[in-house]
Design a protein around this nucleic acid. Structure first.
Lengths: 216, 216
DNA sequence: ATGATAAATTGCAGTTACTGCAATTTATCG
DNA sequence: CGATAAATTGCAGTAACTGCAATTTATCAT
């Protein structure tokens, strides 16, 4: 196991430049719009060479959206798994909210990020794409959670498929809530989404019996 | 109104080269994989200059995935709107199936396309992205259809939101079904998705009453 | 058929994102 | 302080894509 006791001047500097680059990127996008910002502009604003830029971030998008851990927050996951609340959706959204626009760093940056993401369709697209990396994990977590509340006669296979399906549904829901809160009434966060979803799905599905678990 | 009575040698040639390019693209991807195929390769295989390539297709992806009309098939839409089947999901999937991998052209190409798309995650991503253009339309169609079956006391606003939500959900469902039919049992197309969805959503939502339309 | 006209094809140069490699700077540690 | 390894950088190159000006090619009136 490689130790990581002391922060070290080196690491500190590295973290600093990473932050500088991200801030420059977000700032420039705020000022000029996503399209108009080039990597060279970000480099100039950050005082690093283009090559160094790409040492820090694999893509331009990553610098703007933040490196962001491709993992769910452990503590939240545990809470979610332990929770007995029937409102799964809220739990899931909460789970994702932590990592969506936030990295591990400062608040202002995260807020700015959130702003430009929800204001720029192209960026929202990318952000949701970026989030896809988490779905694998979400699927697993979901499976664990679903198994608890699943009836005994339900084959694990089905529960698994359901987890996968729900995980796939999440980006859409996310996108929808973002879109809603962006256009029209910017007041309430994602209140009512569940009701909406409930109503919508009752119409979507053939019979949707409320007490029977399909055992075809 | 600009007339389009005669096909014209010109238009014919144009359609031909478009097809040639698409076929070359798909063929090359089949042979070398998506990553390894460059625009220049496609151009060489099609006997056109790179500039011409980009006159026909805005992006490399478009050549591989097909230009595909960003619109739903009129006839199908009408059928869908007229239908009384409670199985909305099936209807929607059917609606989308027509345009998903198919353009207006030949079968073999469409089949090959379908193959490489479902085999290449990156391409599936792009394909679903490409489909997003249709969601606006789908949302509208959905609204029209939903309004019919909606209870009288439901505000149109809510129906509208529901349509939007469902439209956003579709890519996820599509992705799921593709994933399912790709891995594991390649037998049945998208059978059981509805049951799965029903089960999953009963768990997703808080109470999900089966007779009441939420009127918060 | 023939030449004028407009459209399509092409070449060329340029921009932007991104990569590999080799050289140089810089932090770290004995 | 000097050796070592890591980070930064420059440079050259690839690949997608765009604009513009020149050229080819289909179309159409004569």
């Amino acid at each position: 196991m490689t130790d990581q006791r002391e922060p070290g001047l080196r690491q500190r500097k590295q973290a600093a430049t990473a932050l500088t680059i991200e801030r420059s990127a977000v700032g420039l996008v705020q000022e000029h719009g996503f399209q108009a910002v080039t990597v060279d502009m970000i480099c100039a604003a950050s005082g690093v060479s283009q090559r160094t830029f790409f040492n820090y971030f694999k893509t331009k998008d990553q610098a703007i959206l933040g490196a962001g851990p491709g993992r769910l927050d452990e503590r939240r996951v545990r809470e979610f798994l332990a929770s007995d609340s029937p409102d799964l959706l809220a739990g899931i959204l909460d789970l994702l909210a932590t990592l969506a626009p936030v990295g591990t760093e400062d608040r202002a940056l995260a807020a700015d990020r959130m702003g430009i993401i929800s204001r720029t369709p192209a960026l929202m697209q990318k952000e949701i794409e970026r989030l896809s990396d988490v779905y694998e994990e979400l699927k697993e977590v979901l499976y664990l959670r679903l198994r608890r509340s699943a009836p005994a006669n339900e084959p694990p296979e089905e529960t698994r498929a359901q987890s996968a399906l729900i995980a796939h549904l999440i980006p859409g829901i996310l996108r929808f809530t973002l879109e809603q809160q962006n256009s029209g009434n910017p007041g309430h966060p994602h209140a009512g989404t569940e009701q909406l979803l409930a109503g919508a799905l009752q119409k979507l599905l053939p019979a949707a019996p409320a007490g029977e678990t399909a055992a075809t």
